[in-house]
Write a protein that binds this DNA or RNA. Structure first.
Lengths: 336, 336
DNA sequence: TTGAAAGCGTTACCAC
DNA sequence: GTGGTAACGCTTTCAA
């Protein structure tokens, strides 16, 4: 009576053999109704749940690999943009995808502990997050390949963009469109946001105003924008750490009667769905490319742990729409 | 040499015992380096992949339930809106979520076959799709609880909305706002779309124009809208089967110089993120509610197959924004 | 219709 | 360090 009940417990309680219990569980045709009911009752009484591992082992099904993906599903559409091609790519490779929403650091560590402790997966995809070297060593020791996406990680193959360069590019475009006093609405602690911020400082100078949004959401963006405009009413352009922040900023500006792009120019980051109809100029990043790369990379590594997976630096571009001034016709500007 | 290689094969090839192979695989400290390398080489040579079921059975880890969710991840944000609370709710219940993207009928059947054949899950969530009675019987026989979301299904607990009534409500609102010649841009074969169409016909009459979009996307919506306007230039309102279709229609109308809401009113369906900033009037459905309900329902059923799970009919409401005429101030209208 | 017993591929304990 | 050898919990013949 220590752990979960097994078919032996059920068999004993129902006064039958374990083979009979198994038959009942598998809806085998030739079982007397009374015995069946007795077994079912015993199952219910004991709260019996068949052990999946034992089942699969005995039944001899295929040993399908499983990949765990950790991502901050959050409010943002980013993780979803990555998830879809990931799911599709893994399915094509006959790999199951177990999705874990990681809202905070603690959940992340707990999830990683579990994955490791229970040997719950044959591969790991990290979306927008990294792991320390000890962790990486643990996974290496457990022979579980790990790849990262949207976040570089020492020693792990990763698909990333150059967030600094991307933000520098955004600032340059804003300048070329006539902006003189550019500010930055930063995101949170995530590395990508910190890099974007660093890129902004590098391009706009240390004196340029930077206001962090409490959360990388519309609400956070609007609030941060309010603080920014109160402190620096003369700002004429805002480079934002994400589209959500940018939309919030845009709303706040409208609320204050500051027209975009004439009075103030606004640049987002991501190019989420519908940003084109909103008319937000933004830095486009290859969201689907992240997912596709991760699927291919982790599948290759699962198939052959020695496979050579090359990290990639995906290209970004700025898409000029209605929140930045027009140089000529709306165009797409190449990135780095 | 019939199936996959086992540790016995590795042991034989490396000239060691299976216990040693196991030690190597688990990064046990006390293994001579040479033996370790020999084992590793044998593993590589034979392409050995440890059997997860056997591992877990022997290691005696927790028998964590697994729930499979089938959803058309598609272009729409709908499935994602459902997925997040589902992932969160299941995680809280200690249940793993395996996500399957179901782009078409064939994939669905194949996936269900696999799930059943391999007994790959302890619970199933169907998003925006149903299963036939035979299927349902198969899952019942396998004692795998199934719940549906956004799609009613005979004999299965489901969370749904009344799509007919919702679309009738949309038509009514449009009428109250002065629309006289209302048309419908329909979605695909999915039941929800068919119901919405039926609701439209019921409210607007069989003579009202209905044009199906090739795909329930912006492109599909724009194309269908073009066809509609060519055939019926006098239309003054369009009730759309989804937000994506509505946005496409809105774009097409703008392209033709038809101003919304003055010349033509447009109503969406879903209330996806950012529809408020686009200003689309739409029928809001409780996307997150679907996911939360499914998590709770399937978790309850996993814990106790006899649990009473009540189907729910979630409320909808129409949100009036800038693509419908204003009655007074923009307001939220209660649904049914 | 049912029971006994032989695996399924690992892990882990116990000797050597 | 390393090799036997019991488990682990279930499915599946094979007889009865």
């Amino acid at each position: 009576m220590s752990g979960d009940p097994t078919i032996y417990d059920i068999a004993a309680r129902a006064g039958v053999g374990i083979a009979t219990v198994s038959r009942v569980l598998n809806a085998h045709p030739r079982v007397k109704v009374e015995t069946r009911d007795a077994v079912l009752k015993a199952c219910a009484d004991l709260g019996f749940r068949p052990n999946r591992a034992a089942r699969r082992l005995a039944a001899g099904g295929p040993n399908r690999p499983r990949v765990a993906a950790l991502a901050p599903l959050f409010a943002t559409a980013f993780a979803y943009g990555v998830t879809r091609p990931l799911a599709a790519g893994l399915a094509a490779a006959g790999i199951d995808l177990v999705l874990y929403d990681i809202p905070d650091r603690e959940t992340k560590q707990r999830t990683l502990d579990r994955l490791l402790g229970e040997r719950a997966c044959e591969g790991l995809v990290l979306c927008s997050m990294g792991i320390g070297p000890e962790r990486a060593a643990q996974f290496a020791a457990a022979r579980i390949p790990v790849v990262a996406v949207d976040h570089p990680c020492d020693g792990l193959p990763a698909a990333t963009i150059d967030n600094r360069a991307a933000m520098r590019l955004a600032v340059e475009v804003l300048r070329e469109r006539g902006a003189r006093r550019i500010a930055h609405l930063a995101g949170g602690d995530a590395l990508a946001y910190r890099e974007r911020r660093a890129g902004f400082v590098a391009a706009a100078g240390a004196a340029a105003p930077v206001v962090p949004a409490e959360t990388p959401t519309r609400e956070g963006g609007a609030a941060a924008c309010g603080i920014l405009l109160d402190a620096h009413p003369d700002i004429d352009a805002i480079a934002c750490a994400s589209d959500a922040i940018a939309v919030g900023a845009l709303e706040e500006c409208r609320r204050r009667g500051l027209a975009a792009p004439d009075r103030i120019q606004i640049m987002g980051f991501d190019d989420q769905p519908f940003m084109d109809v909103i008319g937000l100029s933004t830095v486009r990043q290859p969201v689907a490319g992240f997912g596709a790369w991760a699927a291919q990379a982790v599948a290759a590594l699962c198939a052959d742990p020695g496979a050579a997976v090359t990290p990639v630096l995906l290209p970004v571009s700025v898409v000029e729409r209605q929140t930045t001034r027009t140089p000529a016709a709306p165009s797409r500007r190449r990135g780095r």
